[in-house]
Measured scan of single mutants.
Amino acid sequence: EPSQADLDALLSAVRDNRLSIEQAVTLLTPSSGGGSGGGSMDAKEILTRFKDGGLDRAAAQALLAGRTPA
């Protein structure tokens, strides 16, 4: 399960175009075949909204942490 520091680094990389959204989703869902963790939004949607400015960093982190299976 990614830590808050991992999520923060991942969000920074996506925002700075050092990591594509697809690459980030793969890192967030290493063994689930890329499927959502059952959250209301999947990781790709969360990351896309964050990059487009629709979500701030704290909200994106909380959503990603919340949808990651324990």
Score class of each variant (00 low, 15 high):
53 G>E: 03
5 A>P: 14
16 D>R: 05
2 P>M: 10
65 A>I: 07
19 L>G: 00
63 L>G: 05
3 S>A: 10
41 M>A: 06
59 A>I: 07
45 E>G: 07
32 S>N: 15
44 K>R: 10
48 T>G: 05
28 L>S: 02
36 S>H: 13
28 L>E: 00
58 A>I: 08
51 K>M: 09
18 R>T: 10
5 A>H: 10
58 A>R: 07
45 E>P: 02
38 G>L: 15
65 A>P: 04
62 A>V: 08
56 D>T: 09
32 S>G: 13
24 A>D: 00
53 G>N: 04
53 G>W: 02
42 D>A: 07
58 A>T: 07
12 S>G: 07
48 T>W: 04
52 D>S: 07
34 G>C: 12
49 R>V: 04
47 L>K: 00
55 L>P: 00
12 S>Y: 03
5 A>D: 06
11 L>D: 00
29 T>F: 13
31 S>Y: 08
44 K>H: 11
4 Q>T: 14
20 S>P: 04
46 I>P: 00
15 R>E: 12
44 K>E: 08
38 G>K: 14
9 A>K: 07
25 V>T: 06
20 S>N: 04
50 F>T: 00
12 S>N: 09
70 A>G: 14
45 E>F: 03
54 G>F: 11
22 E>H: 06
57 R>E: 08
54 G>W: 09
43 A>I: 15
35 G>Q: 08
56 D>Y: 02
32 S>H: 12
25 V>F: 04
18 R>Y: 08
28 L>A: 02
47 L>C: 01
1 E>G: 10
19 L>W: 04
41 M>I: 13
5 A>G: 09
29 T>Y: 12
17 N>W: 02
65 A>G: 13
26 T>K: 15
27 L>I: 13
49 R>Q: 08
14 V>E: 00
23 Q>Y: 09
8 D>N: 07
64 L>W: 01
3 S>H: 08
4 Q>H: 14
45 E>T: 07
37 G>V: 13
59 A>S: 13
62 A>P: 01
70 A>S: 09
12 S>C: 10
37 G>M: 12
36 S>Y: 14
68 T>F: 15
48 T>Y: 04
69 P>C: 09
17 N>C: 05
63 L>Q: 07
36 S>M: 14
5 A>K: 06
8 D>H: 06
38 G>I: 12
6 D>C: 15
11 L>S: 00
67 R>S: 14
44 K>T: 10
28 L>C: 04
1 E>D: 12
30 P>N: 12
6 D>L: 15
20 S>V: 02
45 E>C: 09
13 A>G: 05
36 S>G: 12
26 T>W: 05
30 P>L: 14
41 M>D: 05
43 A>E: 05
2 P>A: 12
59 A>M: 12
42 D>V: 06
56 D>F: 02
59 A>Y: 04
57 R>Q: 06
15 R>M: 15
4 Q>L: 13
17 N>T: 04
55 L>R: 01
70 A>L: 01
69 P>I: 15
64 L>G: 01
52 D>P: 01
13 A>P: 00
6 D>W: 15
13 A>M: 11
31 S>C: 15
37 G>E: 09
24 A>Q: 00
70 A>Y: 01
34 G>A: 14
11 L>M: 05
24 A>F: 02
26 T>H: 14
50 F>D: 00
43 A>T: 13
